[in-house]
Design a protein around this nucleic acid. Structure first.
Lengths: 126, 126
DNA sequence: TTTCGATATGTCAATCTTTGCATAACGAAA
DNA sequence: TTTCGTTATGCAAAGATTGACATATCGAAA
């Protein structure tokens, strides 16, 4: 498991980020927010979704609210009260949005991998 | 030039960002930094390159220095002194890096456009 | 040997974010 | 009708980022 005796080559990584925005450009619906939507789908409450990605409830609530403002339609059916305290679920529009985003995400992941390989090979050329 | 009488559809835009990082994940070589490299190639000084993209010299210098740390090799041949004050030029490695990045950038721009169209059409389906 | 403008860096204020804390409203079920 | 945990929000403290300012160094050309 020794390293081969070739010159130390600095490792460089290609990173990317995608997000949605509205006309104003203020605020964004990013991967974190979609992570919350995923969590709500799984766990049934915004609180649990926030805990799941180690985000404060305060911030999570703000992220979802901002996303709804940007998109112009509700993402969650929110219910408060009851012995269990309340719960949230994704609206049909949110489900569709999440699915479209996940497809996008996957396309990017694949694309980035290929682009990265191409990039590195170009750097090593001649 | 009146708007057609269909229901207001919220406009949503897809944004993306790509950047390079090292093992530590701290710091990044981003589009701004490549913009500086481009400017140096064109204008011959870091200062002019910074002015060109309305960035302070202080920040520009920091960005290039950070990039060199991340990559592990020099990007600029820097010269100070002389009646003209000094100048900078791209190292061969920086030229190759810049070209590889520009190709990457272009690939992404094209891809993103297609991905965006696909995304929107998915949202409008059913 | 003086000059001039670019390179090189520290620092501290201003600003923008994030986080934590507090407090209220809610309502189904026990 | 009491209870319990989630939704809902304001606000101040703490952090992180940015930007502006200041100041020093350098050396070819005049």
């Amino acid at each position: 498991m020794d390293k081969p005796p070739r010159p130390t080559k600095t490792e460089v990584f290609l990173n990317y980020k995608i997000w949605l925005s509205g006309l104003t450009g203020h605020g964004q619906v990013n991967a974190e927010t979609f992570g919350l939507l995923e969590g709500i789908k799984r766990f049934g409450t915004l609180k649990a979704a926030a805990d799941n990605i180690a985000m404060s409830y305060r911030k999570a609530w703000g992220a979802v609210t901002e996303a709804e403002e940007i998109l112009g339609y509700p993402l969650l059916d929110k219910h408060r009260g009851g012995k269990d305290g309340g719960n949230s679920s994704l609206t049909p529009a949110a489900i569709k949005l999440l699915e479209a985003y996940q497809a996008l995400q996957q396309q990017f992941d694949e694309r980035v991998e290929a682009a990265y390989a191409d990039f590195i090979s170009k750097l090593n050329k001649t």
